[in-house]
Design a protein around this nucleic acid. Sequence first.
RNA 1: GGAGGCAUAGCUCAGCUGGCUAGAGCGCUCGCCUCACACGCGAGAGGUCACUGGUUCGAGCCCAGUUGUCUCCACCA
Length: 877
Amino acid sequence: MSQRRELPKTYDPRECEDRLYRYWEESGFFNAEVNPDKKPFTIVIPPPNVTGQLHMGHAFDETLQDTLIRFKRMQGYEALWLPGTDHAGIATQIKVEEALRNEEGLTRYDLGREEFVRRVWEWKEKYGSRILSQLRKLGSSCDWRRLRFTMDEGLSNAVKEVFVDLYSKGLIYKGSRIINWCPHCRTALSDAEVEYVEKPGHLWHVRYPIEGSDEYLVIATTRPETMMGDTGIAVNPKDERYRHLIGKRAILPIMNRSIPIFADEYVEMDFGTGCVKVTPCHDPNDFEMGQRHNLEFILVLDEDGKVNENGGPYQGMDRLECRKAIVRDLEAQGYLVKTEDYTHNVGTCYRCHTDVEPVTSAQWFVKMAPLAKEAIRAVEDGEVRFVPERFTKIYTNWMENVHDWCISRQLWWGHQIPAYYCDDCGHMEVSKTPVTCCPKCGGSSIRQDEDVLDTWFSSALWPFSTLGWPEKTPELEYFYPTDVLVTGYDIIFFWVARMIFSAMEHMHEPPFKTVYIHGLVRDAQGRKMSKSLGNGIDPLEIIDKYGADALRFTLITGNSPGNDIRFSVEKVESNRNFCNKIWNASRFVLMNLTVPDFALPETLSLEDKWILHRYNELVREVTDNLDRFELGVAADKLYSFIWDSFCDWYIELCKPRLGEGADPAASEQAQRVLGHVLTGVMQLLHPFMPYITEQVWQGLRGADSSIMVSQWPQYDEKLCFAEECRDMEGVMDVIRAIRTRRAEMNVPPTRRAELIIVTARGDLYRSAEPVLKKLAYGSHVTVLAEAPEDTAGMVSVVAGTARVYMPMSDLVDTEKERQRLQKELDNVSGQIARIDQKLQNEKFVQKAPAQVVEGEKERRRKLQELQARLEESLRQL
RNA sequence: GGAGGCAUAGCUCAGCUGGCUAGAGCGCUCGCCUCACACGCGAGAGGUCACUGGUUCGAGCCCAGUUGUCUCCACCA
C-alpha cells in the first residue's frame, strides 16, 4: 500500500503510454478472429499514404475510429479495425523522384522503369512503417497482424480481377477522349483530381478574316496558345449578327489556315463577341463540337505542356511562353483588337498544383452510368447511411452527374494495366495472368500496356480486398460488410463513392453500413493546416508534450460530425489538465483504499445514491450518444461528470467519512461507492482516453488486469434513486447558497459559521450534517422547523425548501441585506408570474404534454415556497 | 450558374426527436497554496441565440425570406 501513497502529483503520460501500448499489443487485445459466438464489428482504416507522415488530419480520423472500435470491443463485439497503407501512385512517385534528383541528380528515365520501381519499393520498405509506428503512438487499436498494402499480392489480384471483370462487361474501355493532363506529373488525371482555382487572366479579342471577303469576325479567347489547334468557329444559330457567315470559312491568323464557320446551340450569344474558336483537342466542349460537326482534331501540345510539331513557328515553346509570343505576334500583325482583364477558373493538379491541360488522349475509362445507378440506389434505400445526413445529397448529386472515370496514369508506380498488345497482329488481350502468346495470331511479340491504374482504383476495393476477396475467405464471410467508414468530406468523391459502386458491382452488397464524415482540422485562426503555410501542428510533438489522451480528447470534444475543427494548443492544455484531474481523483481514492473490491454496500448515504444515480444516467446517455455517433457530446458529458459531479462534489462529500478517525463502516461504504463509480467512469472514458483509463484501472484492479477486456457498463435499474437525487440537489443548493453569501460578505474561509437551518425536512438536513459542516463551513448545524425567535444580527439565505441563518452580526449590513433579499424576491416573483401566464393559457394546459404541465406546476410550488421564505426574511430584518 | 455549411458569452464551440432560468473550455473579476490536484478550489461578471416574417400552447432548434461568411459542384470561349 505504501507505494500507492507515493504516486506523483501530476500524471505523466510519457511514463506509461508506450509501455501500455506494448502490453496491449503483446496481449493480443487488438486482434479479432472469426468467431461465430460473437457479432462482428468492422472498420477498415482509410489507408494513409505509405510514405506519409502523421498529420493532424490523420490524428483526427484515427481517433474517431479508435474510439468507436474500442467502444464496440468493450460492448462485446468481435471488433476488427483493419489497418493498411496506400501506395499513393503520384504522391509516392513524386517523392522518390525528388529524392533521386536531390541525392543523385538523376531522373526516373535515367534509371529506367524496372530499376525505378525497384527503388520505390526500397523507399517503401524504408519509410512505409514510419506512419504505422506513428499510428501506434496515438493508441490506435488496430489488428496489426492483418496489415495490408494496396500493392501487396492479394490486393493486386483483386485489382486485376476487377479490371478484367469490368472490361469483359464493357464497363472498362479504352478510348481517345478529352482528359486532364498534368504536364508536371506527366500523367492523365481524373476529373476528381482537378482543383479549380480562380486566377486573373485576360480575354484577348482577335480578328479572324472571312475567306474571300473584307469582313472579319472577332473572337474572344483566354487561351490563344492553343490557336494552332483551331479547326472551326462556332456561332449561335439564332444570332442575327453572324447568320450570313454560317457555312463560310475564316482564315486562322498566323497559321493562315482556312477553317469553317458553323452554328451550334452551345455558343452563348451574350458572352464575349458571341463567336467561339473551336479547338477540339484542347477543350472538352470544343471536343464535343468537333465530333458533332466533324471537325479536324489537331493536337498542339506535348506531354510536357510544350508546343509540338503542329504548332508551326511556336514549336518547342512552353505553353505560357507560347501564349506571350502569340499575343505579341497577333498584335504585330494587326489581329489583336483589344485585351481585357478577366478572372477565370483554371484547373490545377491536386498533387502539384500545376495548371492542368485538357488534351485529347488515348486512355482507359470506367463507364460510370450503369455503376452509378446501383450506387445511388443503395444510398437512397438506406443501405448506406451518411452521418451527418446532409452528405447524402452531395454524394447522390455527384453520382448522378458523374462522367466516365479516367483510370490510366502515365506513371511507373502502381498497378500496371493488365492489357496486352500483340505487335504482330495488333490484337489486344485483357487478362489476369500475363499473356505471352497472342490468342489471335499466336505471335509471341507481346507488350503489356505501359500505364498504371489510378491509385483510387485499388482503394475503391479496400473494404473487401483487404478481407481476402476475390478468395472466399472466412474473414470476408464474417467481417464483411464493414460497419462504419470514417473519413473526411474532402474524399467523398475520390474514395467513398468509388467504394460504394465497386462493392455494389462486385459484392452485390454495400461496403459499409454507415459513413461517418468528419471535417478538416484547421489552425487556431481557422486556416487549413498546410505545408506551404507552415501552420501545421505535429501531432507527435503534441503527444510528446501533453500525451495522446489529451490530444485525442481535444480532437473529439467541441466538435460535431461533418464540421471542421479549430485546433489550438490551449485546448490541449485544458485536456491535459483534465487528465491530471482524473489522475488526482484516482490518487485520492487509492490513498484511502482499504477495501478489497468495489461491490456496492447494502446501505447507501444520500450522496452515495445521488452519485450512483447520476452515474447510472451517464452510462445510458454515453452509450446512446456513442451509438448515434455523437462522440463530442458523449465526451463532454464524461468531462463534466468526472470534474463537476465526481471530483468537485462527490469526493468532497465523501471526505467526512474517510481518513483518520472516521467510522470504519462508513469509510468502507464510501470507498466502495467511490471505487465503483471511478472504475465505471474509466470504462466509459476508455474509448476516448485509452492510456490514463488503463493506468487508473490497473491502479484499482491490479497490474495484471486490463480495462480493454472489461465489459462496457450497463444501465442498472437498481441504481435509480430519483427521489434521493432530488433531495441531494436540494442540499447542494443550500451549500451553494451559503458559499455565495459568504463570498458576497467576504467571510474568510477560516471562519466557521454556525448554521441554523429552518425546514420542514428536518431529517434530511440532520442526515446531511457532516456534509454541510464540511462544504458549507458550518462548525455546527441546528435544524429547526420554525425560524428562531431572535434573528437580529443573523444573515439568512434561502435555497429550495430551506432557509439558513448564519449568526454573523459583525458582518451584516442591514440595508445591503434588504436590497439583496428584495432583488432575489423580485426575481422569484417574476418567475412565478411567467409560469402563471403559461398555466392560465388554456391552450397550453390543453395541448402541452401532461408531463410538461405538471412540471410547471411543481416548479411553481417550489418558487412559492421560496417566495414565502424570502418575504419572511425581509420582515425579520 | 447550382448545392450546402456556418452565424449562440470577449475568443473557440456544444446544444440530441421543439419544453424549466440557453451550456462548456479558454479569457476576465473577486477570494483562497482547504490534509487528491495551483495542470487546483470557491464565488462571480458576461448572451435581444445574425435579421424579418410564419407555424406552434411553446422556437436557438421547424418553415419562408434577407444579410454576412465559408465550402463544394458546374466550367461562358
